[in-house]
Amino acid sequence: MLSDFPTLLGAGLVLLGIFYLGFLSLKINFPGVILYIIFGVVIADWLHHNEILHFASEIGIVLLFFLLGLEFSVKRLGSIAKKIWPSGLLDVFLSLGVSMLIALGFGMDLFTAFIIGGIAYATSSSITAKLLDDKSRMANRETEFMLAILIFEDLVAPIVIAVLIGLSTGGDFAPTDLFYIMAKVIGLIALAIILGKTLFKHFERFLDRIEDEDFKIALLVGIAVAFGGLALWLGLSEVLGAFLAGMMLAEIGKIEKVEHTVLPIRDLMLPTFFVYFGTSVELGEGFPMPVFLATLLIWSMIAKVLVGIIGGRWYGLSKKVSLRAGLSLCARGEFSVVIASIATGTAKVLGGIYVIVAAFVGMVLFDQAPKIANKVYGKKKPKKKDLRVPGS
């Protein structure tokens, strides 16, 4: 029986599948992330509870955001936070609020509509960050704005999840619960800042004294995973914890030393996250409420584009760059899956189908964003060089 696969054999076959799909994606020029997710959906019945796959996927996503956090020192993150909150609130209203109203308009009760709004809210941090890296867009002008939106969503999404879990278990979500969550978020951020300014202030010199690369891997991966795990223990997102761990080390002089050590581990582990993500999506049978599903998909894409167009301008980006940012924020992912798992019946199936389609459409829009922006606003013409010989 395939369902009786030993855990180790299943993990090995997944790695071989990742190798083949990665090779195939290069040959056919198709995003590998989509192939990994589809692969996960196909093997879901066999490997959904594979512990090694789950552990590797956690390590992969933690290291992705740990390396992202390295790009943001405390000073830089503080200046970004001051600029991003209006755009973040616009995102909450358009992506969560209006999606809730659409669900209510299709006859859903308030609780189910809240679940639908939560599913449609958060951009996939993992997919977006991976595509930014794959497409060599990390240095683009819109990337800082996009990452700021992702971090804002990673702060809001745990609150949404906590509210939904409280309501789904029949409990009441009191204002004190919201205060408790915000206190944990602020406390974790404060801890990261304090450690970055004290314990890790001279970390670079300590790192230089470690000659064995294996020990460096254990140290750096251990820091990232421990802080991500601390966030999970507090009931927050491991993505937020990993990002803050990277931010702690951003205070050192040369982050290239950390990147050089961690990158190979991240590149090995990260594809397993998307495979495991695929195994966690529940599709059910058939397409319930197709008109509602199509309406939700169309609006949720429009909402993110509007967040980019309007929020990007508030952030100080040009019209063209703002459009490119909005088109690149459409993929939904891990938080949507977590929220969909709280749902029951039709809403659960709707959530599974929505996540797969939104992830696919979002990745396509990300890939086409530069071309669409160039078509709408025109491509910047390169300046002509003066080739005259001096003195002629």
Rank of each mutant, 00 (worst) to 15 (best):
G117D: 11
V349R: 10
S57L: 08
A325G: 04
L327R: 10
A224H: 07
G117I: 10
L232Q: 12
V337D: 01
K304G: 02
V239A: 13
S126P: 01
A56Y: 05
F19C: 10
W85P: 00
P175V: 01
S99H: 10
L90T: 09
V160N: 07
L94T: 04
L26M: 11
A231G: 04
G22L: 09
V355I: 15
K184A: 05
I28Y: 09
V14S: 08
A331C: 11
G284N: 08
T272Q: 03
K254G: 02
M182I: 15
L270S: 09
R141V: 08
H48A: 12
F215L: 11
G241Y: 13
K184W: 03
G312V: 06
L155D: 00
G241H: 11
I80S: 05
F66N: 08
V281F: 09
F152Y: 15
F203P: 09
L207C: 04
G312P: 07
L8K: 00
G391T: 06
V337I: 14
L13H: 03
I116P: 00
F65T: 03
K319P: 03
S25L: 06
L297G: 09
D172W: 02
S73Y: 04
L387H: 11
L155Q: 04
V98T: 07
R324V: 09
V305H: 07
R313W: 07
G60W: 06
K348I: 02
G170I: 00
T344S: 14
R313C: 00
L68P: 00
P271D: 08
A122L: 10
I28V: 15
I189R: 07
K135M: 13
A331K: 06
A224F: 09
I52S: 05
T346M: 13
L96G: 04
L64D: 08
A139L: 13
S237G: 02
I223S: 03
F287D: 00
T112K: 10
K83M: 06
D109A: 02
V185S: 01
I252N: 06
A250N: 14
C330M: 04
I115G: 01
L24S: 02
D177A: 14
I116Q: 02
A250I: 10
G308C: 07
L270D: 03
T169P: 00
